[in-house]
Amino acid sequence: MTDEQEIKSTLEDYAKAYCTKDIDALMHVFEDCDDISVIGTGADELCIGRSSVKELFLRNFAEATANQFEWQWSKVTISNDYAVVAISLAIHLEYQGSKLEIPIRWSVALRKTDRWVWLHRHASSPASNQDEGQAYPQEA
Results as ranks from 00 to 15, higher is better:
I23Y: 01
L58G: 04
S125E: 11
I91C: 10
A17D: 02
G133C: 08
H28P: 01
D22W: 02
L56H: 05
I36H: 04
I39P: 01
I36S: 07
E55D: 13
I23K: 07
A140N: 08
K75P: 00
D44G: 15
V108E: 07
L119M: 14
I104P: 01
T20G: 06
D24P: 08
P103L: 04
S37P: 02
F61N: 04
R50G: 03
R111M: 11
E6L: 15
A140L: 12
A66N: 11
L89I: 01
S128E: 13
S51F: 00
P126H: 05
E55C: 07
A127M: 11
L93H: 08
K99I: 07
S52R: 11
V29F: 01
T113M: 10
S79G: 13
N60K: 12
Y95W: 00
W116M: 06
D35W: 08
L93C: 12
P103S: 05
K8E: 04
L46K: 15
N60P: 01
L11D: 05
R121H: 04
A90S: 14
K21Y: 04
Y95F: 04
G49D: 03
A43N: 15
G42P: 00
D34G: 09
S124T: 03
L110C: 13
W73T: 07
R59D: 14
R115G: 07
H122R: 09
D44V: 09
N60I: 14
F57A: 03
Q138E: 13
S98R: 13
D35V: 13
M1F: 10
C47T: 04
I78L: 02
K8M: 15
S124C: 08
K8S: 06
L11C: 11
R111K: 15
I23N: 05
N80F: 06
R105G: 01
E55Y: 01
W71T: 06
V85F: 00
E6I: 10
A62S: 15
T65E: 06
F61K: 07
W73K: 07
E45T: 10
G42N: 11
D13K: 12
V76N: 02
K112C: 12
L56G: 03
D81H: 10
F57C: 03
M1E: 15
E6M: 15
A62Y: 02
T20S: 13
Q72K: 14
V84Y: 08
Y82W: 14
K16R: 14
D81C: 07
I23R: 06
A62N: 14
A127I: 09
S51H: 06
E94Y: 03
M27D: 03
I39S: 13
D34I: 02
D81I: 04
D81T: 08
A140H: 06
I78Y: 01
I39G: 10
E101I: 15
Q68D: 12
K112A: 11
E31G: 12
I7M: 04
S79R: 14
I102E: 13
E63L: 14
L93K: 14
S128A: 13
A62D: 13
R115H: 11
A66T: 07
E139R: 08
E63C: 09
F30V: 05
I102Q: 15
V108G: 09
E94T: 06
Q96R: 06
S74F: 00
D35L: 11
N67P: 00
C47Y: 10
K54E: 14
A140G: 06
Y14F: 14
K16F: 02
L100M: 12
N60W: 12
A140S: 07
S124F: 05
S52T: 09
F30T: 04
A83G: 08
L56E: 05
V117D: 07
